[in-house]
């Protein structure tokens, strides 16, 4: 019996997304990230919400992709107060669960610091900076397997959608190797950093997840 979309996510999004044609695999993707089967269904590794910074088209595209994959979406305009006060603070008191997003610096800055107190860490951080020539520089830090995956992707103009499954898959697990955050060399692509308003800095793709052993 085929798993439901939500069960699919609970079992480890990246591995699933990148190996199942039903979910429109991104072109040129290599073998999936390796997530130990014993931990795929662990509730603390569930992806709880994706944060959409609705001021920016790229963020909405990222969240669209996550939502399409079954992750519940939170709309913000850069202010995470309602999400924190009305939802996440209560959820994290019952146990750590992962959240992700593509946002400006402010939401990530706040959520990362709030996450520390609950044993969660940023497992993947992509910095997407518009350059003076209109290109976008992607500077990524995350598990080596995820970086290798992105290295083989043609991010292009669809970078926000294409990077989403990879980011969402970096949820930590009991394999220490997958929890080690590495840095990749910056890469520059001919792609617009699409924003309905001009971001005052880069946009960031990220996932905050329980750290290994948490």
């Amino acid at each position: 019996m085929m798993p439901s979309r939500r069960e699919f996510l609970q079992a480890g999004l990246a591995a699933s997304v990148l190996s199942r044609p039903a979910l429109e695999p991104v072109e040129g993707t290599p073998a999936p990230l390796q997530i130990p089967p014993a931990h795929r269904a662990a509730p603390e590794f569930a992806l709880y919400r994706v944060v959409s910074d609705d001021r920016f088209s790229s963020s909405r595209v990222f969240a669209d992709e996550a939502e399409r994959l079954g992750v519940e979406r939170v709309h913000t305009a850069g202010d995470i107060t309602d999400f924190w006060y009305g939802d996440l603070s209560s959820r994290w008191k019952t146990g750590p669960v992962a959240i992700a997003g593509l946002t400006a610096h402010g939401p990530l800055f706040c959520l990362e610091r709030l996450a520390w107190d609950h044993g969660l860490r940023v497992m993947f951080r992509g910095t997407h900076q518009r350059l003076a020539n209109g290109q976008v520089q992607h500077t990524l830090a995350g598990p080596a397997a995820a970086l290798a995956l992105v290295e083989q992707l043609d991010l292009g103009t669809s970078w926000a959608a294409r990077i989403a499954p990879v980011v969402l898959g970096c949820r930590g697990d009991s394999d220490p190797a997958s929890a080690v955050v590495c840095s990749a060399s910056p890469r520059v692509e001919d792609a617009a950093l699409v924003g309905d308003i001009e971001p005052s800095g880069p946009l960031y793709s990220w996932i905050i997840a329980p750290r290994c052993g948490a």
Binding site: T76, G78, D79, I80, T81, G106, P107, F109, C110, G201
Partner: peptide
């Protein structure tokens, strides 16, 4: 009423090219 909306503002200025 406590909130964190101030973090949604990032004012880039001549003196502060990287407000984040």
């Amino acid at each position: 009423v406590p909130n964190m909306s101030i973090f949604s503002i990032g004012a880039r200025t001549e003196l502060n090219p990287s407000p984040s």
